[in-house]
Design a protein around this nucleic acid. Structure first.
Lengths: 193, 193
DNA sequence: CTCATATGTTAACACTGTTAACGCGGTGCT
DNA sequence: AGCACCGCGTTAACAGTGTTAACATATGAG
């Protein structure tokens, strides 16, 4: 790829992690990349597509976290470990998590981003579905529509993580949160088995 | 209250519902209220506090939806109905839901809003805790830390609703979604009882 | 009557994303 | 070699943003 294109992405990456989406302006990115702002538009259609590149990287990292689950010895353990990987990703990379799952399309004018993110996210969702199918095959989960059950599990994980990241219960310590998260998953799996 | 203050809020309200947060600009609000933009600042400290007024109204409406649960005959039913009220609110007033629960502080520069929203939200959370306590007393839920269990339930509801509102599974029809939501709550309560 | 206060105005500042117009350097074609 | 093209950068500019300063006007109190 182009030299400066990488520089732009690197600058945008760092700036986003430093100041969040609100602080991410094209002019700042340009300055950090030692370039003028309009030059960015030689490499990216607009701000949104530039952002999407970051999301793509984040999705890659996210997949790595989920894949930790594969270390598990049996189906149920693999599913639970994947769930913990999900939480680890959210807590260790809140900036990424926010832009991946918590940016409502209308809020910042990111319609297209969401669509693209959704499609790039498909394989990681498939990973979850696979874990669920595995559990249904081994009897760890009751037989049912695997995709639907996956969504339910995903929503449970996402609910806790997103509320946490939106500071809706910041009074709870991180270890308490992690504990609650695990318990929530376990009790939910009980309900689904 | 002041005459124009109400006009401003009304205009902001309509504009937000019409164009979302991205389209809500002080100048547009001013124009809709037949006023000049800086005049707004005679009535509100800044955009954020103006928005907070809308959130407060939304919270009021939200509480009404939750309270539908009280129609239930016994503890378990009241809890489940409250959960459905939660979903109804999210689906019928997605704009409100988004700004209440899905606006990450850093994204739009709404730090203070989130804090205030959190405090104004406290009573509605208390309502959920009460329902949970009731279920523990009646034996519908296992005895445990009621607040923690409430958070887990809330997260489950929020996870499904927020993913839905973020268009993360827009391929599912609304009736399918409602069905899945109910099933998710039921199975979770099984896990918690 | 006068003075203070509340409430509005216009002009302006410092930003934002984005486009237009221009220029420079290298590459390929005749 | 000359010339056109094109990728890549520049500066200037546009339309929009939240917000503040400076100024005006009306209203009510002493």
């Amino acid at each position: 790829m182009s030299e400066t294109r990488e520089a732009i992405l690197k600058a945008a990456h760092a700036l986003y992690l430093r100041e969040g989406l609100a602080g991410l302006s094209m002019r700042k990115v340009a300055k950090d990349a030692n370039i003028s702002a309009p030059a960015i538009y030689r490499h990216f259609q607009d701000k949104e597509t530039m952002l999407f590149e970051l999301v793509a990287k984040a999705t890659h990292l996210f997949m790595a976290y989920l894949s930790r689950g594969l270390k598990g010895g049996h189906a149920r353990e693999r599913l639970e470990l994947a769930g913990e990987g999900y939480m680890d990703f959210a807590l260790e990379h809140p900036g990424y998590y926010r832009i991946m799952f918590m940016a409502p399309k209308e809020h910042v004018g990111l319609q297209r981003l969401n669509e693209q993110a959704a499609s790039s996210f498909a394989p990681t969702f498939q990973f979850l579905v696979d874990r669920v199918r595995e559990c249904m095959a081994s009897g760890d989960l009751a037989n049912d529509d695997a995709e639907k059950v996956s969504v339910i599990i995903w929503a449970n994980c996402h609910g806790l993580c997103s509320l946490r990241l939106a500071d809706h219960f910041s009074e709870i310590s991180e270890t308490e949160f992690r504990h609650m998260y695990k318990q929530s998953i376990k009790s939910q799996l009980v309900g689904l088995s």
